[in-house]
Design a protein around this nucleic acid. Structure first.
Length: 423
RNA sequence: GGAGAGAUGGCCGAGUGGUCUAAGGCGCACGCCUGCUAAGCGUGUGUACCCCAAAAGGGUACCGAGGGUUCAAAUCCCUCUCUCUCCGCCA
């Protein structure tokens, strides 16, 4: 959520910066609703003041045995007026709040202005795409030929966009999860968490998926729960409605969770293989920081995600998303794209974002810098470290051999009981 | 799923219709005192929003959440959420 005062006081600047995201926002609605809301509020507060004053006087008169009938009649009228004013006020407040909750975050000033993916800025590359003396295969062919991935039976038991990992495939996925968690907890200073994969509406409003993107989520009717689309949701909401101590910042969490996405509207995209699934595994990093340090923390989070790819010796590049390509809650985002020989392209495997105080406002996550100072909103960051299924794809495609086997990256062998090759 | 108990400020805890403008304690901040420390004494102590150009100042709301009764609700009524105890079921 954006700061209402910022909108009131610097509307022209906000308009211009928000426009760089693309899409249109009805700013007149903001001005109108804000005006209406404040007028209605001032009106009702005046009446309530009167009510409180009358009630106090009636109390005193009754205590001293006097007759308060006239004042009580007046009080009745005031209460009637309050009741009449309450529903218009509630109505305008609801509309105002809904408007505010559907505004995306303001892009950071440093972010490159652009419309689409093609305007994104490559920041750096690492590693060389491998040279094969044969035609490299897609991971789904590799996986099915080695009998470590089974899409046919996944379709039978669940449907499209699901996968069954089998034998060494299942084990490789598990090895990747453990490898990533160990790296982030032992070397990068994150605390491991294992949160629920189901969350309530308030949590999804906190991180920004609701109210605008309900169709992207799986909703469970009994209990009104949602399956999490990313561990960012439970991890960030851990501290919803909390006051954090400045000395505990930055807080750094890492969690492995399954993630669930409806992929509504993605028909025809990545229809084969593991790239786009309804259910996938992800190791996610989340940070809570002071405003001053959040951009340094974003840089180090990106380095933490890169370290996974470096240790696996997978070639990748880092891309800074332009204003038009960023997610709803983000002020600045870096994507990590891993080289996939089967597609002859770099594909997203991690996304690291600084949400500044956008989520902290929605989720009411604050800290007090000074003991007597006012509460301030923290900055929240999140990043994949990494998308596990896509990492498995990258391993299969980059480490494939002419004979159809796949070499296990050295860093993973301790997690595979020393196994060095899947054949 | 059944029965019962509970939810009050940063924390503990009192409070069953009108000075609750929430007692008291702890904690915290500032000051005083004491050669240090401890103790003691005094003062203060939340959040959000609104009015005001700003400051000063003023107002409204907040006792788990939402409704209701009443001139007036922490207090009475209804619904819900969560926590705890016991029973049942269960990986």
């Amino acid at each position: 959520m954006l700061d209402v005062k910022l909108l009131r006081e610097n509307l022209d600047e906000v308009k211009a910066r928000m426009a760089t995201r693309g899409g249109t926002i009805d700013w007149n609605e903001f001005v109108t609703l804000d005006r209406e809301r404040r007028d209605a509020l001032a009106n009702i507060e005046r009446l309530k003041e009167k009510k409180n004053r009358l009630s106090g006087e009636i109390g005193k008169i009754k205590k001293s045995g006097g007759d308060a009938a006239a004042l009580m009649r007046e009080g009745e009228e005031v209460s009637e007026a309050i009741r009449a004013g309450e529903s218009p006020l509630a109505d305008v407040e609801t509309r105002f709040e809904r408007f505010m909750l559907t505004l995306p975050n303001l892009p950071a000033r440093t972010v490159t202005v652009g419309k689409t993916e093609s305007d994104n800025k490559e920041v750096r590359r690492w590693g060389e795409p491998p040279n094969f003396d044969f035609e490299p295969k897609n991971h789904w062919d590799i996986g099915e030929e080695l009998a470590i991935l089974d899409f046919t039976r996944a379709a039978k038991i669940a449907g499209a966009r699901f996968a069954v990992y089998r034998d060494a495939g299942a084990r490789l996925e598990r090895a990747l999860i453990n490898f990533m968690l160990d790296l982030h907890t032992r070397e990068n200073g994150y605390k491991e968490m294992l949160p629920p994969a189901l969350v309530n509406r308030a949590s999804l409003i906190g991180t920004g998926q609701l109210p605008k993107f309900e169709e992207d989520l799986f909703h469970l009717a009994p209990g009104d729960y949602f399956l999490i689309p990313t561990a960012e949701v439970p991890l960030t909401n851990l501290h919803r409605d909390e006051m954090l101590e400045p000395e505990e910042l930055p807080i750094k969490y890492v969690a492995y969770t399954p993630c669930f996405r409806s992929e509504a509207g993605s028909y025809g995209k990545d229809v084969r293989g593991l790239i786009r699934q309804h259910q996938f595994n992800k190791v996610e990093m989340v940070k809570f920081t002071e405003p001053d340090t959040s951009y340094d923390e974003l840089e180090s989070m990106v380095r933490n995600a890169e370290e996974v790819l470096k240790r696996l010796k997978l070639p990748y590049r880092v891309v800074e998303l332009c204003t038009g390509d960023m997610g709803f809650a983000s002020a600045k985002t870096y994507d990590l794209e891993v080289w996939l020989p089967g597609q002859n392209a770099y594909r997203e495997i991690s996304s690291c974002s600084n949400c500044e105080d956008f989520q902290a406002r929605r989720a009411n996550i604050r800290y007090r810098k000074e003991k007597k100072g006012r509460p301030l909103f923290v900055h929240t960051l999140n990043g994949s470290g990494l998308a596990v299924g896509r990492t498995l794809v990258a391993v299969l495609e980059n480490y494939q051999q002419k004979d159809g086997s796949v070499v296990i990256p050295e860093a993973l062998r301790p997690y595979m009981s020393g196994l060095d090759q899947i054949r």
